[in-house]
Nucleic acid binder design. Structure first.
Lengths: 204, 204
DNA sequence: TCTGAGCGTTGATCTACATCAATGCTTTGT
DNA sequence: ACAAAGCATTGATGTAGATCAACGCTCAGA
């Protein structure tokens, strides 16, 4: 159950066997079936979750009932509503399993205790947040200054295999902040650019 | 010169007098006059800067020559291109003083040494990044799912005093990802909502 | 085996915001 | 004290992407 977590940890920090053993005790394993929720709007986000297996999405619902996906999390990634987790205020997000998932949950009190007893985790989470911040800033810049087509093209360039195969197109659209119709049209345009249309070539 | 920095540090971590004294040695004070640059596109971001005094902006220039502001930093805030600082790749950002500034610069090697000698700073920077991430995520969500008017209204609600007084309107527009013309029109609309137009009331 | 829901696609129309252009006010530098 | 640059505003027009509506395909469940 902890294989992937420790693999990821070792990329950033070196833990002794002692520390590994101890750190396990702070996590609670949890399985989630497709369409089950890790967090629902209005609830306080009690855990940050490490994804050992599966795929989740985090989304909001606006006053018109439209879903807006703002994050996906695969194997090897963390997911939570950082704001609600930190402040204990009710969350505006829903976090839902899109596939059957195996998660490792870390509660606030466990996190505090873990950081206290194994200070190396301060560094690990700092680096994690740093990378997350860089990625989020990049998305923000591109959402403010690029067209929908540019954003889609970059997304499938950065993530050519995973995203299109495991995530339905209308959810990708939502993640990019556009409608499914627009994404469909963008894809058609891109395809016709790559393989230019051969004009009717009627003989005679 | 270090008053504000230590005030801010104390909000997150407790330092001994010894540690305070030591930590000073890692920073390089730097004054910047209005319109001078802390970082220019193409250069590697060598420092994260704490702003003791003044105001800076971070922006990109796209292929059409348009500026896109993505961050402001006032007294008490940090500013840098995290990505370039981390990877040592050339930056895509320009960081420019909008007012005369007093900064405290921290180089990568100083940061590493400081984190090594005063591990409490791991926690400090982790918390800093966490808050920054939460704020950036909020901006991302709003840029993807709200109208320009909603974004502007929220901005002046969150920051009613500082922003409009120290930052010219066309830079606020750029920060919001809209044109100066659009922001001007939005402001007119908001004003006419607050103080509804009195219809011509010609007697007779 | 049928049925209904979910999904992607396409067309027609609408709208928020961009772009282009002009004007007048304020600030800056010499 | 003056010229020049920077800035906010307003109007006319253009456009990326949203919305509304319809259609066919696929697949899960009775």
């Amino acid at each position: 159950m902890f294989e992937l977590l420790f693999q990821k940890l070792e990329e950033k920090i070196k833990l002794t066997e002692e520390e590994k053993k101890l750190s396990r005790s702070f996590f609670v394993p949890k399985k989630l079936r497709k369409k089950q929720y890790l967090l629902q709007e209005g609830d306080v986000c009690k855990y940050v979750a490490f994804v050992e297996k599966g795929l989740l999405r985090s989304y909001t619902i606006n006053d018109k009932g439209q879903e807006h996906i703002n994050q996906f999390a695969f194997e090897g990634w963390w997911i939570a509503d950082q704001f609600s987790f930190l402040t204990r205020e009710p969350s505006k997000y829903n976090i839902e399993a899109m596939e059957d998932c195996e998660l490792l949950l870390l509660s606030k009190s466990s996190e505090d205790e873990m950081l206290d007893k194994i200070p190396k985790f301060e560094r690990y989470f700092r680096i994690l947040l740093q990378n997350n911040l860089i990625a989020t800033q990049k998305r923000l810049v591109s959402s403010l200054s690029q067209t929908a087509e540019e954003r889609y093209s970059e997304l499938i360039q950065d993530c050519p295999t995973t995203l299109p195969h495991r995530i339905p197109q209308h959810m990708l659209a939502s993640f990019l902040g556009i409608t499914p119709e627009t994404l469909s049209r963008i894809r058609r345009q891109i395809i016709s650019k790559k393989a230019p249309h051969i004009e009717d070539n009627v003989q005679g």
